[in-house]
Design a protein around this nucleic acid. Structure first.
Lengths: 368, 368
DNA sequence: TTCTCCTATTAAAACGTTTTTACTTCGGCC
DNA sequence: GGCCGAAGTAAAAACGTTTTAATAGGAGAA
């Protein structure tokens, strides 16, 4: 019998057993237990078996904290989002979770509410916890936060929006192509006068989407009228007011493109309340293809944003960095948008038929 | 000059400084540094200041892993959800995050996809990580998982669904009262024949909601017809098929109550496609009041489920247990539902007026 | 002067692992 | 019989903290 006199917590019945307890119970040293459980080759088969059995029996599980300290790891990755309740977000979180889970790591969810100080505090806390990687969704880290992450040598993947001046792995969508598809589609239907509801200018994606609108207007020689373009903030409310403002234009458009689905849905609501029929009076196209855009009563034509794939790609990129500790230059994954035609879009009305003011035909909304 | 000969990682420029590095730089012992930063009273003011300054200068942050090991804490709480992409979930997550954040703890998000093995693996992993508390949302832990949590002495709060046989702190809503309100409201409008789309029988909440329907039918002496009650699974699709099945009844109802909003929205879609007007031909009432129920085109009358408050209450309960390590008996917080009247409900049609087939008055859908 | 009591500091132990190094034991070989 | 290598195990160091117990240096009292 070995001389291991473990005066450990064997008295305390409830506390979880440590490797010392297990070693004592097995009559071997902690080192051997560790090696046995880790399947190291230098431990006799019979010993390994008995350790295994005893471990299961006692319900021994190694403390992740202790291992983490010793190994310098944490098996945690941080995920910083602005607002988890935004319907776009959970879908990409789902994609991230899936691959992170398969890598046997955990996800620490940080909801910043877009507050700079909360963001900073979260980043610090994550770094203190020695996270193995960080994913930042649709947000910008402040330069000082960025320096911290960089100094800690923690792999970072930004999604949808990078930090200007700093470069990291990136996953996004081709916003320009998406809006171009929407515009080309509408033009193909015969629309020549198309309104646009923008996102906030602080967002790269919003800028890109608007730039693509401008470009399409020029390329197709469409009506270019400032009163057709309204600001927005990606929220439904602003889609509502934006649509109202656009339709109040001297010559209203026959179609409206919104920089995201929530604004498009807001526009849909506004048009409905204005007594305008969609798509007969005006077509509406969104961007992102959030779940509810598919509902038969909303039936929104939109640009699909592969959300799950976005999360998936971000997590994959991150894991590669973590595992390989690669020093390759930062990579970008740019996903392809696609057009989803639904009932909110159609050809424009037969053109400005003569002069028939205030036609009393305000009826139902959509047909399809 | 103290004899502290710290041969630490001062050579390595990049690595994050440890308390030894900081102590060396300050010319004091690690103990003093620790005490200074922790504002212990036994350190000279001038020393404290200089340690503070030097710490900021070097960017020293204590390793959470090391502190965690020493202090037996983790500053992490686990949150187990079934599907983060379900629109109900992010709202309560938001509520949880808010209070957890204020307590300076982190949230480890576990998405189980309702798979038993994934659930088990996540729980084990969380316990290994020494989480300080656990919140389980709309799910049941297996008895063996439950034993583990119990043995680890980790405070647990279940939300919306407890584990039968085990008792823990609990947060839920008065499902019965909610459906009763919906039914009483519809009866008040004059409805006597009301359909119901159920949730899965494996869910307590779904059972309660259905029980309340049955009870209301009896209490009010409403038509009790099995063909008015259809199974569902809380997904939109089943609301669609459920509504179709119900409307195929020999005598269709004048109103349908769905056990949650997603099924109600599915029903709305089905009715629309069947060419039935809401609420003129049939009223629809949901349960939960998810964000999109408020959209002007959906405009769903529903029972509000205080989602944010649910998360809030759950986290609060958990923190109390963590801080107080109370041994009080488990507590339950049962939130109050409330009726949100929107456009999808109204009085029934003037009754089976004589025989007037296919009245041509197909007009708009909602009023309110 | 010597003893006592504070104050400020430090050495050392502890938290629970993993890994490197060292130590047995034993069989085979010269 | 002594040496060597291999196999199996154990001791000890290390990861970065916090806390307990010990120590040094004065100040004041006897």
């Amino acid at each position: 019998m070995p001389t291991n006199t473990n005066a450990g917590s064997t008295a305390n019945g409830a506390a979880r057993p440590t490797i010392l307890d297990l070693a004592a119970a097995c009559g071997v040293s902690p080192a051997t237990v560790s090696n046995a459980l880790a399947d190291k080759p230098n431990v006799k088969a019979s010993t390994r078996e008995m350790v295994r059995r005893k471990a299961a029996e006692m319900g021994y599980h190694a403390s992740a904290t202790a291992r983490g300290l010793r190994l310098g790891r944490s098996w945690s990755i941080g995920l910083v989002v602005g607002d988890i309740a935004n319907p776009f977000v959970p879908e990409v979180v789902r994609g991230v979770e899936d691959v992170v889970w398969r890598a046997r790591k955990n996800l620490i969810l940080c909801n910043t509410d877009f507050q700079a100080d909360k963001k900073t505090a979260y980043v610090r806390s994550l770094l203190d916890k020695n996270i193995e990687g960080l994913i930042v969704l649709s947000q910008v880290l402040s330069p000082s936060d960025m320096r911290l992450v960089e100094a800690a040598d923690v792999p970072l993947v930004t999604v949808n929006r990078g930090t200007p001046g700093y470069t990291s792995d990136y996953v996004g969508i081709d916003n320009h192509a998406g809006v171009r598809m929407a515009m080309d589609y509408l033009v193909g239907l015969g629309h020549r006068r198309i309104g646009f509801i923008k996102g906030l200018p602080s967002s790269n994606s919003a800028l890109d989407r608007f730039a693509a609108y401008t470009e399409a207007v020029e390329r197709h020689g469409l009506d270019s009228d400032p009163s057709l373009v309204m600001p927005g903030d990606y929220d439904m409310e602003s889609g509502d007011s934006g649509a109202r403002a656009i339709m109040a234009s001297a010559i209203p458009p026959t179609a409206i493109v919104a920089a995201n689905d929530q604004m498009a849905l807001g526009a849909l609501g506004a048009l409905h309340e204005l007594g305008l029929r969609v798509p007969d009076d005006v077509s509406v196209v969104g961007f992102d293809n959030i779940q509810l855009a598919a509902h038969p009563l909303l039936n929104l034509t939109t640009i699909n944003h592969p959300k799950r794939e976005t999360g998936d790609a971000a997590a994959r990129l991150l894991l590669q960095r973590i595992l390989g500790k690669m020093v390759d230059p930062p990579r970008s994954v740019v996903l392809k948008p696609s057009l989803i035609v639904r009932g909110s879009s159609g050809p424009p009305k037969p053109a400005p038929a003569p002069k028939r003011k205030k036609s009393a035909t305000a009826k139902n909304k959509s047909d399809q």
